[in-house]
Structure formats: structure tokens, C-alpha cells
Amino acid sequence: SLSVDNKKFWATVESSEHSFEVPIYAETLDEALELAEWQYVPAGFEVTRVRPCVAP
């Protein structure tokens, strides 16, 4: 099958004044980091952490 098993990760994104967490959907932690950097670094943010979303 061609289905992709995307998992939810939380990326911590920082600017000079703010820090916030955004959801990233990817297959692996490395891919989540790449996606977060691709989305947020060009906008002037720094991705400081990516972690798996742990269900309660």
C-alpha cells in the first residue's frame, strides 16, 4: 500500500522574543526536524527542539 504512517511531533520554534511549539507530521524524528527547519528557518525562526508527541 502507499499509505504513509505519519506521526505527530512537537517542534519548539524560537524567535528573538518568543518561543512556541508547533505540531509537525512526519514519519521519523529526522524528517520532522527537516520539515520544521524548512518551514520556519526562512521566516527567521530557530528550531531548537523536536520531540515525539506522547499520547496521554
Rank of each mutant, 00 (worst) to 15 (best):
P56C: 08
E27R: 14
V13L: 13
P23C: 15
C53Q: 07
F45T: 02
E14Y: 08
A36Y: 03
Y25H: 05
R49D: 12
K8P: 05
P23S: 06
V22M: 04
E17Y: 12
E31K: 15
L29E: 06
V22D: 02
W10E: 01
L35N: 04
E21N: 07
V47Y: 00
A32I: 01
W38N: 15
E34W: 13
I24G: 00
K8N: 04
F20C: 07
L33H: 06
P56D: 12
S16C: 08
T48P: 03
W38Q: 15
R49P: 02
A32S: 02
E17G: 13
C53V: 08
S19M: 09
N6M: 15
V41T: 11
Y40W: 15
S16T: 09
E46Y: 04
L35S: 04
E14D: 04
S1L: 09
A26V: 01
H18V: 13
S3D: 09
P56N: 13
A43W: 14
L2A: 13
E46S: 05
G44A: 00
R51E: 06
K7V: 07
R51H: 06
K7L: 08
N6C: 15
L2F: 10
E34Y: 13
H18E: 12
F9K: 01
T12I: 05
R51G: 05
F45G: 03
A55F: 11
K7I: 08
E34R: 15
I24C: 05
V22K: 02
T48F: 00
A26K: 02
S15K: 10
R49F: 09
N6Q: 13
G44Q: 01
A43F: 13
V41Q: 09
G44L: 00
A55R: 09
C53L: 04
E17W: 14
N6F: 13
I24A: 01
E37F: 09
K8V: 13
P23L: 15
I24H: 01
A26W: 02
S15C: 10
D30N: 10
P52K: 07
V47C: 01
A43H: 13
Q39R: 08
S1P: 10
L35R: 08
A55N: 11
T48D: 02
Y25I: 06
V13Q: 00
E37G: 04
K7M: 07
E27Y: 11
D30R: 13
V47R: 00
S15N: 14
A55H: 11
T28L: 02
P52I: 12
S19P: 02
E27M: 14
F9Q: 00
L35T: 05
L33N: 04
Y25T: 04
P52G: 07
S19F: 07
K8G: 05
A36H: 01
L35D: 03
L29Q: 06
F9H: 02
L2Y: 08
T48Q: 03
T12W: 07
E21M: 07
Y25A: 03
E34A: 15
Y25L: 05
N6K: 15
S15H: 08
A43V: 06
T12N: 04
P56F: 09
P42E: 12
P42D: 11
P52H: 08
E14H: 09
D30S: 10
I24W: 01
E17Q: 09
E37N: 12
N6G: 09
G44D: 04
V50E: 01
E34F: 13
A55V: 11
E17C: 09
W10M: 09
F45L: 05
P52C: 05
S15M: 07
F9A: 00
W10A: 03
V41M: 09
A55Q: 10
P23T: 09
V4S: 10
E21Q: 07
D30K: 13
E14V: 14
N6L: 15
V50N: 00
R49I: 09
F45I: 02
A11C: 10
G44S: 00
V22N: 02
C53D: 15
V54S: 10
K8M: 15
S16K: 12
A26M: 02
P23R: 05
D30I: 10
L29G: 04
P52T: 07
G44N: 02
D5F: 10
W38R: 15
V54K: 10
F20L: 05
L35V: 06
R49V: 08
F20N: 01
D5M: 14
F45D: 02
A26H: 03
R49N: 14
V54E: 13
E37P: 00
G44H: 01
V13H: 00
E21I: 09
T48L: 05
P56G: 11
P23N: 03
H18K: 10
F20T: 03
E27C: 07
E31I: 07
H18Q: 11
L29Y: 08
R51A: 06
V54P: 11
N6H: 12
L2T: 12
L33K: 14
W10Q: 02
V47I: 08
L29S: 05
